[in-house]
Simulated assay, not measured.
Amino acid sequence: MQTILIIEDEEDIAELVSFNLQRSDFEVELAHDGLRGLAKAKEGLPDLIVLDLMMPGMDGIALFKELRREASTRKIPVIMLTARGQTEDKIQGLELGADDYMTKPFSPKELVLRVKNLLKRSSHTESGAELVCGPFRFIKNSLLFYVDGERCDLTATEFKLMLYLCERKNVAQDRHDLLKDVMGYSGDVHSRTLDTHMKRLRRKLGERMDCLETMRGVGYRVKIDSE
């Protein structure tokens, strides 16, 4: 049974989310302030964290930075919860490496779907297969990624996006397909989320950032010159 840690100071919201996750056969841990949430994350190492941004003790952005500093919690997928009007906090969270976000008020059933989709994206793939695409190398079963032989730390979402594009190298991929097939979104409302992930991914590629191209009016592609 996979464990979800909910860090949310509004107890009624936390309990509602917990109830829906438990109905979907998840084990749930709760924390109602940032400091306690950070301690529970480090102690329990949950499979996924649902993190509110506005909390007493330690806000969600500061907590998230701490999670990413620690080797043991760095790879835990995180869904951030934001209030309406917190656009800058939401974008900051995505740029720091959060995997997803939801804006309050939200549907608990939709959150459960997001949790399932993110866990699926974060799960190791079978067989330990590798893919080499130009300067990029993927080890699928452990979500490891290398650029010119050097390890490059990607979130699970970044890894899946880059892998999807490299498996279809030199061909423009429609942003709707990326949102649907890789990120599990049914509409285009999360286009800015995709763009933020791509911006962060391009930055991580360093000198190879030009391989990740924006195709205006279409989406994105990985361009690999013929060897």
Rank of each mutant, 00 (worst) to 15 (best):
F159K: 01
S186H: 00
Y220R: 04
G60W: 00
D52H: 13
E150K: 14
M162E: 08
A83G: 07
R203K: 15
S127I: 04
R202P: 00
H197A: 01
I6K: 00
G37N: 03
Y146E: 10
M102C: 04
Q2P: 12
A156E: 06
K223Y: 13
V28K: 09
L96M: 15
P108C: 09
K109F: 09
G149W: 11
D9R: 03
D153L: 14
G206H: 01
A41K: 14
F106Q: 05
M183Q: 08
I49V: 15
M54Q: 13
M1Q: 07
S18Y: 00
E43G: 04
L119N: 10
H176M: 08
I13V: 13
M1V: 09
K180V: 01
A172Q: 02
M102Y: 02
G187N: 11
D9Q: 05
Y101E: 02
Q86H: 10
A71E: 14
L96D: 04
I91V: 15
E110H: 08
L143F: 07
D52R: 14
E158N: 05
Y146G: 01
T125I: 07
L205E: 01
E15W: 10
F145Y: 08
R202M: 02
Y146W: 09
I91C: 02
D100H: 11
L81T: 04
E11M: 10
S107N: 15
G219L: 10
P105M: 06
A98N: 03
R168P: 15
G97S: 11
T196A: 04
S123A: 15
G97K: 10
G34E: 02
H124K: 14
L154M: 10
L179G: 03
M80H: 01
K180R: 12
E95I: 11
V115M: 00
L131C: 01
F145D: 00
L63E: 00
Y185F: 15
G219D: 07
E10F: 10
D181V: 09
T3H: 07
L143R: 12
R36Q: 11
D47S: 06
P46L: 11
G37F: 04
